[in-house]
């Protein structure tokens, strides 16, 4: 039995690392703004069912295409549904799908990329040629095909996007891992006679966590774009679940009559993705620095 007392210490160490990343994020103004935007969105995503004034399918027959008012803060759509309610609820599904899909992508793509870099040789060469070929087919097309064949259940969307973004994560993770695979501390571990799984888990992966973290943030933002675009095209999150992408599509033709149904979902979606990217950008900048200089001596 490995001693349990090591666990809190490990935890403290990794928390220390997170705290450090957090501090460097906060140091950049862009990062702070991005983080605040993301936190607000996450709060809304979690809390919206309890704070929205109507149900998303409630129809106010007298008020169709209404402009914002006290009764309907964002106005109503062509059916007379409350836009405030629908906008607050409209991110939940997309955000959930994007976060899970990005997690799956980084998990399998990242792991495979790291393993390929570590194994090297012919296996690496053959698999990478295959990955290159997969990358030659536009990712959204693959997703479209699979979704059309298998349906638009959340699980399908998540797995499909997770697969598509995983393919490109392989490249990134492999590239980052290659920088370490040839380094002396890995050579030292090999010369010591460490088992391969130990080398990957103990020596290699801790050095790649930050790359994978940045990768996760970026993939999450792209997956959000992708799922919203799919919904816009009619292949994503299906009605009646409210969704920003679909709302833009539904209300776009009425832009001349009443822009509110398009404008509010657009603002919600764009602000979230911009927020994620601002935070992700600051994060990678913070990590790209020589962190050894930051450490207290």
């Amino acid at each position: 039995m490995r001693s349990l007392s090591a666990v809190p210490k490990r935890l403290a160490q990794s928390l220390g690392w997170i705290a450090q990343v957090w501090r460097s994020l906060r140091r950049s103004r862009q990062g702070t703004i991005g983080l605040i935007i993301v936190i607000v969105h996450m709060f809304i995503a979690v809390a919206s069912p309890y704070i929205v004034p109507y149900a998303h399918h409630d129809i106010d027959g007298k008020n169709r295409l209404a402009a914002p008012s006290a009764e309907h803060p964002f106005g109503t759509d062509s059916f007379g549904r409350d836009l405030f309610t629908r906008v607050l609820l409209g991110g939940r599904a997309a955000i959930g799908v994007a976060l899970l899909a990005a997690a799956i992508a980084v998990l399998w793509g990242g792991l495979l990329g790291i393993l390929l870099a570590f194994i090297g040789g012919r296996v690496d060469e053959v698999v990478m040629r295959f990955v290159d070929a997969l990358l030659a087919i536009p990712g959204l097309l693959v997703v479209l095909l699979i979704v059309v064949a298998l349906g638009t259940e959340f699980s399908v969307l998540i797995l499909t996007l997770g697969y598509a973004y995983g393919v490109s994560t392989i490249r990134v993770a492999r590239g980052a891992a290659l920088g370490f695979v040839a380094s002396d501390f890995i050579t030292a571990a090999r010369a010591r006679g460490e088992r391969k799984t130990n080398i990957v888990l103990r020596e290699l992966i801790p050095n790649l966590l930050d790359v994978l973290l940045v990768e996760y943030v970026m993939r999450a933002s792209w997956a959000l774009t992708a799922i919203s675009s799919l919904s816009y095209l009619g292949f994503g999150i299906a009605p009646p679940t409210p969704d920003w992408g679909r709302m833009v599509f539904e209300n776009q033709v009425l832009l001349a009559v009443s822009p509110w149904g398009t404008l509010f979902p657009v603002i919600a979606l764009a602000s979230l993705i911009i927020g994620i990217n601002l935070a992700g950008d600051a994060l990678s900048k913070a990590i790209g620095l020589d962190r050894s200089q930051e450490a207290p001596t």
Partner: peptide, 21 residues
């Protein structure tokens, strides 16, 4: 960052709203 983040259909929709509508 703003340009990169904003989905194409959002940019397109906004352009339609401003430039054609």
């Amino acid at each position: 960052i703003v340009g990169m983040s904003t989905p194409e259909f959002v940019i397109g929709t906004l352009l339609i709203w401003i430039l054609s509508v």
